[in-house]
């Protein structure tokens, strides 16, 4: 049976099913518009740990445990863990795995990691290599700031185009059997660089990649935005979302049903400027707001596309532009 369609699209005939999902967020996210959908807040964002990196690891530990509990399986039943985060060497994920101790494949796709892990997980299940896989990512405002930008107490002004790294983590369990939302198709994104150098405008760096993946997917599947109840991007933010809509329009697609996790997660008065960002942004919104409403039947078929700005402080200082990537999965409620 062929599992490919066109150039970019993957088909999963066995339709891996999401049997467990869980989201954990920090205080600011909990105070935002999506509060009712999140499973847990950790309150103070150091979570009683001695470093921000350990705190982020704790977030992922909480989300993976929550997802395991919902799926009703033990960690020994997880065949592979696909995950990653924004920190150097993906330490938040690695340290979570110290105690979780499942077979592990580490991923780095910047903020696109949630969709990347779902695609890898779905392929693993559809290929018959696993019964259950765990896909998880996390990000933490404080650990991201100190690695990518400035010390927390440094007095700087954040430009309007800048985004706020979400403190949060989301975990999803994909299984061979069960009931729930299914992953039916996916598209692996390409690295697209539109020459954006502004470190404070990640949305602009990622929007072309998002457009590229979407257009390729529509062509391969011979569909248009109207075939889906919702198209939701990861962390383009308000600026990136507008740019994506404009780019799609230039390519002949009118997408009114476009949403963005980064634009949803904070309200305007929360001082997050262009919106949320980070792996934890799309991960926490997917594993709460999106999957819960799919389960409730609000939507039947959505496209979830996590976007990543593959930015490194080193290459940025060397004058390089910021490449973007976007991975897409099609989620269907049977």
């Amino acid at each position: 049976m062929t599992k490919r369609l066109g150039n970019n699209t993957l088909l999963f005939p066995s339709k891996p099913v999401i049997t467990g999902f869980y989201s954990v967020v920090g205080k600011k996210e909990w105070e935002g518009p999506l509060r009712q959908w999140f499973d847990l807040t950790v309150g103070e964002s150091h979570i009683g740990e001695t470093s921000w990196e350990k705190a982020e690891s704790k977030l992922m530990e909480l989300s993976t445990n929550g997802a395991l509990e919902m799926a009703g399986i033990s960690k020994e039943e997880i065949s592979v863990f696909f995950g990653g985060d924004l920190l150097n060497q993906c330490i938040a994920t690695n340290y979570t795995l110290r105690t979780l101790a499942t077979p592990f494949i580490g991923l780095y796709g910047a903020c696109s990691t949630m969709a990347e892990s779902l695609i890898a997980g779905a392929m693993c299940i559809d290929g018959g290599f696993a019964k259950n896989v765990l896909c998880a990512t996390s990000s933490h405002f404080c650990s991201a700031e100190r690695q990518f930008r400035f010390p927390l107490e440094y007095g700087g002004q954040r430009p309007q185009s800048s985004q706020w790294t979400v403190t949060g983590s989301g975990a999803t369990i994909l299984s061979e059997n069960g009931t729930g939302v299914r992953i039916t198709r996916a598209a692996i994104g390409k690295v697209i660089d539109a020459g954006i150098q502004d470190l404070n405008n990640m949305g602009a760096a990622m929007a072309p990649a998002a457009c590229d993946t979407l257009c390729a997917f529509f062509e391969d599947t011979n569909t248009t935005p109207w075939n889906y109840d919702l198209i939701v991007t990861g962390d383009l933010g308000n600026i990136g979302k507008d740019l994506l809509r404009e780019l799609l329009f230039q390519n002949g697609y009118a997408a009114q049903n476009l949403e963005d996790c980064g634009a949803l997660i904070f309200s305007e008065d929360q001082d997050a400027h262009a919106g949320g960002s980070g792996c934890g942004c799309s991960a926490s919104v997917l594993n709460s707001y999106l999957l819960k409403q799919l389960n409730q039947g609000k939507w039947h078929k959505i496209l979830f596309m996590a976007t990543g700005a593959l930015m490194s402080p080193t290459s940025a200082l060397q004058g390089e532009s910021i490449p973007g990537i976007a991975h897409l999965v099609q989620l269907e409620k049977e």
């Binding site: 309007q160 185009s161 697209i192 539109a194 602009a204 072309p208 600026i239 740019l243 230039q250 262009a274």
Partner: peptide
Amino acid sequence: MKKINQNEYQKMVSHLGKSPWITNV
């Protein structure tokens, strides 16, 4: 997707997210 012209895209981007410079000043 049509190829993106970097200069045109740069122009598109520069219209968005203007800083509130008067308040800042």
